[in-house]
Computed example of a mutant assay.
Amino acid sequence: MTASSSSATSADSDSAGSGVSDVVTAANAFIATLDSDQQSSVLLDFTQANATAWSNLPCGSTCRVGIELSSLSDTQLTAAKAVIKAATGTGTDTGDDQVTQILAADDYLGETATGYGSGNYYLAFLGTPSTSGTWQLHFGGHHLALNLTYKDGAVEGSTPYFVGVEPTSWTGDDGTSYAPLSGMYDGMKAMVDSLTTDELSEAKLSESFSDVLLGPDDDGAFPSTKEGLKVSELTDDQQALVLAAIKPWVDVADDDTAASVLSTYKSELDETYISYSGSTDLSAQGDYVRIDGPGVWIEFVCQDGVVFSSQIHYHTVYRDHNTDYGGEFTFS
């Protein structure tokens, strides 16, 4: 596979922005349900301060901008969820399905501990939703930060995307089984399990990790030197597993954008590195896997449980070296 310095933007494909008009239509329909005070909470300037106002913590409005879902009427909430559905990818455990399951996880936590629940999530539009100009769909809460940046009718960036879950799986009262990060776990596990003893030795990091390295407030802090095992050293089958491992994160965006971005990352595989810390079991505190390319940056880490202390839970972040926040801001 050949290396490429291109960035993972939807501008690489004429079809990548084909669903943006649906997102704009859904956004305007939601805005139309709001009174003037609510609109002032939702429609904000696309500034660096607003765009980077996200966290993995259940910290409410102290670390987020936008309108809280719990403040919405049933009609408004349905319209808000329609925006997320239009903007994110389809398919099991990806896109809208994953976001829906993360909110369900918070409701599940709320049955045991205070401060959790799907109502404690915030939605904002940074800039004016439109098929022209630049704006961002900004949505998140505990264990979720969704940042989709649009420019002139196309997705300019689908990162940062932070997602976590506690517990990693559970069964609802109605018998429904949930495991929102199972596709991410399975992809990373298959990738590292394919490595030989020598390859594992080369991929092993000297550092240990209790959380993701590039989480909230760590914008632009990519390591200056890539570490681990270069994907060009792997067999074709192993390289296919690396690309398959990347896909569940890319699938957070609409399907056309996700396909375009994944194509870019495929062209960059030869210059991409994979690495890990802890063990490759991905079952204990500090087990950690990373994919770092010219564009793609993905981290997946296991942590001890907070509410369910006898279990582990997952944190993961997806960034792009070139298109975080649509590449609109410079970070020192």
Rank of each mutant, 00 (worst) to 15 (best):
W297Q: 06
L146R: 05
T92N: 15
G278Y: 06
D304K: 12
P129V: 01
C63S: 14
V192Y: 11
I298W: 04
N50G: 06
L229D: 01
H138S: 04
T323S: 13
G157D: 00
G127H: 06
S21R: 12
A8R: 06
A49Y: 07
T159W: 02
Q98D: 08
D287C: 03
D174A: 07
D74G: 13
N147F: 04
W135V: 05
T159N: 08
I31R: 02
W170N: 10
E328I: 10
S13H: 11
D304T: 12
S267A: 12
S70M: 12
V301L: 08
Q101M: 11
W170R: 06
D107I: 09
T196R: 03
L241S: 08
D93V: 11
V99C: 07
T62D: 15
D211F: 09
A113V: 07
A221N: 15
G327M: 02
K204T: 06
D12L: 15
E111G: 14
Y318E: 08
A104Y: 03
L181M: 14
F30N: 01
E166D: 03
G95A: 04
T25H: 12
E202F: 02
G91P: 03
L181N: 06
G127E: 04
T225Q: 14
G91Y: 00
I274R: 00
A124H: 01
E202S: 12
V42S: 09
A105S: 13
G127W: 03
N28S: 12
D37G: 10
T131H: 05
E268S: 03
N28M: 09
Y288K: 00
S169C: 11
M191V: 00
T257Q: 12
G157I: 02
T257Y: 14
T168N: 13
T94A: 08
L137K: 01
A16W: 01
T272S: 04
G215N: 13
D270I: 01
D236M: 11
L123T: 07
Q39V: 08
G153T: 07
P216N: 13
V306K: 02
S232W: 00
L57A: 14
Y108R: 01
V242W: 00
G157T: 00
E233S: 15
G66R: 07
S232T: 09
A113Q: 12
D45Y: 06
Q76H: 05
L43A: 09
T92Q: 15
D211T: 08
L72G: 04
D320E: 09
G60Y: 00
S18G: 08
T235V: 01
A258S: 14
